[in-house]
């Protein structure tokens, strides 16, 4: 039997999100995203213009957030063939990206990694609330000239 250190466990847990993020952009847009090494959140508010938030319950508890600039979201819609960049569709794709990456993680975590429907926060000054007591990892993404982030805060 092999045992993992805390750091190895965290890396293992985050790898599914890293793989899922790369897969999403590659598959939906045909253009690869570079997903960087996760780091611990230090700034108070790391959110960008739009944030999609997924509540996690069951075997793990917490939140998964995907945050991005509006311009990047317009580029994703464009890559999907969508021509209507209205506010509703921008919010919709923000939630859908968060939902798809979180749902795909169940391939590794299993059915008891239960996810909510997405909630989307918008506006340049919106504040994401992180549950206290748990570390939040930020996974930086680079796609085209944009730098969205995935943020993982799980017990």
């Amino acid at each position: 039997m092999t045992s993992l250190t805390l750091e190895q466990t965290e890396q293992h847990d985050l790898q599914a999100f890293i793989d899922g993020t790369a897969h999403y952009f590659d598959h939906i847009t045909g253009q690869e995203a570079v997903v960087g090494a996760p780091y611990l959140r230090t700034t108070e508010n790391p959110s960008l213009e739009y944030t999609g938030m997924i509540g996690v319950s069951g075997s793990r508890k917490g939140f998964v957030y995907f945050t991005s600039s509006r311009e990047m979201l317009e580029n994703v819609l464009d890559a999907m063939g969508e021509t209507d960049f209205c506010d509703a569709n921008i919010a919709d794709i923000t939630g859908e990206i968060a939902n798809t990456i979180s749902g795909n993680v169940r391939r590794s975590y299993g059915k008891n990694f239960m996810i909510s429907v997405p909630v989307v926060l918008a506006g340049g000054n919106h504040q994401v609330t992180f549950p206290g007591g748990n570390a939040t990892y930020i996974i930086p993404v680079s796609w085209k000239q944009f730098e969205p982030r995935l943020m993982i805060c799980l017990e």
Binding site: H23, Y24, H27, I28, N99, T100, I101, S102, G103, N104, V105, R106, R107, Y109, G110, K111, F113, I115
Partner: peptide, 26 residues
């Protein structure tokens, strides 16, 4: 669906769905 685990696919198929395609799809 974005839910990519086998158990969810099996559950949906057992209820009568005939196919399961994971998001993201092309």
């Amino acid at each position: 669906s974005a839910l990519a685990d086998k158990a969810t696919a099996i559950e949906a198929l057992s209820k009568g769905a005939q196919g399961y395609l994971s998001k993201p799809f092309n």
